[in-house]
Nucleic acid binder design. Structure first.
Lengths: 344, 344
DNA sequence: CTGAAAGCGCTTACAG
DNA sequence: CTGAAAGCGCTTACAG
């Protein structure tokens, strides 16, 4: 490939001069500038970014680490879109890499690899699947030790409040259940995601908290899970609930996807929604609005969490004090036809 | 940060020796090896990959370029998952970056940026949205000029058959329409995606070809599009079709997403599926199976196209002759309840 | 078995 | 206004 030396030779100047015009540094006469640009054009010269970064000791690169296996989540694609845009605006190169979401050690290894390539800052989306001992401590220590800022998405680090943004999934599920209760429901079932997921456990707890606070019966047989945390799992779980022949007027589901599966199971069993049973999803997936009936849900501010993370990272990179205060986000009710009021 | 020199000094050897033990090159006594590893551990030394790449003149890095704005597609997440796995297995670092899918010039710029960082090979997923003059020529020329192999996904480059893999969307749509015809349908409507998309135009053409071949009437009023190529667009388009008060027994849709929107519109108008009208989607999105009724579709071999692309890239990188012959893929019928047979 | 030296492609004071 | 030299952190023949 053509190097800066080739350009310098073609023009008859030194590398330093070529470098200076490239970086508009120092004083260079208009004539040589022109000649240099001409040669660059002719030779189709492009600087080797690796060499530049090594020499300058900055890479102007942001690293983004995403978890694998999120085929169904809009979070990740949105995260990529928004972070790329942020990087473009800040004049940084975005280097995205993916890591198995189930293993925190692999995650830390990947973060280190990003550092080895001299990223100036890193955003790490922590998969809900990870739940190992001491993970909080590991991440907090990592943030201390790393030579560049690391912002963690989707996890609470109490000792590093300026380095994380997360959803309060307990509150998100509560929102749905409280709404059901306010509308007269007392016998509320819950379809749960798989319990190895942090998000899943938090949402289940939100359901339980809301029931307790309202003084309603907490029957573990009103809670069911399925083979996965998606359509099929919702379908499975709902069939279980139906088989148990319990009395319930509403189901809150771990996600819209599970709610869609549940809806199918209910229909197959001749149970009308919302006439016989009301359904609530969580996440406000776009498709929920196109179900029959459309599914009520809690909208989760995905864009907000990402833009806050981006803002935090840039502030740290510029050694500014972070301006963001609330790094814990909840959601917003979205009413659709899958829930009916119960009047005694 | 700690450098190789720090390690060398701590052990009392030269940088060359440290480098040799790190790369297990040359003969180094066990004793110094041990001492070096100990120092590396103690100092938490990690080689600067930028410096390594510059010196070695290889980076062991693969670049993956994805389009933005694919919030709804499972292709992209799958592409990331599979390419990452491929890179891991090949011992390469995967550097993913994203670019506005609408502009081929931006795409080429991003490819160049990847080269500037010395990627040893690049996979470029060409968005269907791009459709500019001369794009085929631009990409073919780029492949010629680039110092490393570039494989293009989702686009046909007739003069570079070993550097591209794509879906034959004409054939994919034909498959659905031919199946409807075989099952007795004659009046078949089509809900189209937005025509600025290459995929969208190809699928529409597949519908038209199939109708023509069967000697069926091609009525342009049986074709409708919507505000987007997704749920809402399908809903809009179907409402248009209904308003036109034409006689049709089936609708083939550009995608499952549009089919889901269409289903909603039909239901709202008291039209039963499949009793009154049959519906066909394309893509075989997972959610289609959870509709009421489940939607027939054409499964598109996403995984295949990606693994072929990966194989091609690695073969080029190793200067092997590509073994893959068929770089054009079609789909497979998936029968569900949204289509009924018509018996005269 | 080990080290001095040159080199990868760039930038950056500094001297002229 | 321009260039020689040193340096970024590593690797790689080569000499000893």
């Amino acid at each position: 490939m053509v190097t800066i030396l080739d350009v310098a030779r073609q023009v008859g100047v030194s590398k330093a001069t070529v470098s200076n015009v490239l970086n508009s540094k120092g004083r260079v006469s208009e004539a040589t500038k022109k000649a240099v640009f001409k040669a660059i054009e002719e030779l189709d010269y492009r600087p080797n970014v690796l060499a530049q970064s090594l020499s300058k000791q900055v890479s102007d690169t942001i690293g983004l680490l995403i978890p694998s296996g999120y085929h169904t989540s809009r979070y990740i694609t949105r995260l990529i879109d928004m972070t790329q845009e942020l990087a473009n605006k800040a004049g940084k190169f975005l280097m995205i890499t993916q890591v198995d979401g189930n293993d925190i050690e692999l995650g830390i290894q990947s973060i280190r690899k990003l550092i080895d390539r001299r990223c100036d800052g890193i955003i790490y989306y922590k998969s809900s699947h990870i739940e190992e001992i001491d993970i909080q401590n590991k991440l907090e220590t990592l943030i201390e030790e790393l030579p560049v800022p690391l912002v963690v998405l989707n996890y609470n680090l109490p000792n590093k409040p300026d380095y994380c943004v997360w959803f309060d999934h307990v509150a998100i599920a509560q929102l749905a259940v409280v709404n059901l209760i306010e509308r007269g429901h007392k016998k509320i079932a819950y379809i749960s995601g798989q319990q190895h997921m942090h998000t899943s456990r938090a949402r289940l707890q939100g359901y339980q908290d809301a029931m307790k606070k309202a003084g309603l019966e907490l029957n573990s047989r009103l809670i069911a899970g399925g083979s996965d945390s998606h359509y099929q799992g919702g379908y499975d779980a709902c069939k279980k609930l139906i088989k148990r022949e319990l009395d319930f007027s509403a189901i809150c589901c771990y996600s819209d996807a599970m709610a869609i599966g549940a809806l199918k199971a209910l229909k197959e069993n001749g149970i009308s929604v919302p006439e016989d049973v009301s359904i609530f999803g969580l996440d406000n997936d776009y498709v929920g609005d196109f179900m029959d009936p459309p599914i009520s849900s809690i909208d989760v501010p995905v864009d907000d969490i990402i833009s806050i993370a981006g803002k935090l990272l840039l502030e740290h990179m510029q050694n500014k004090l972070p301006t963001s205060k609330s790094n814990s986000l909840t959601g917003q009710l979205v009413h659709r036809k899958s829930v009916k009021d119960i009047i005694d």
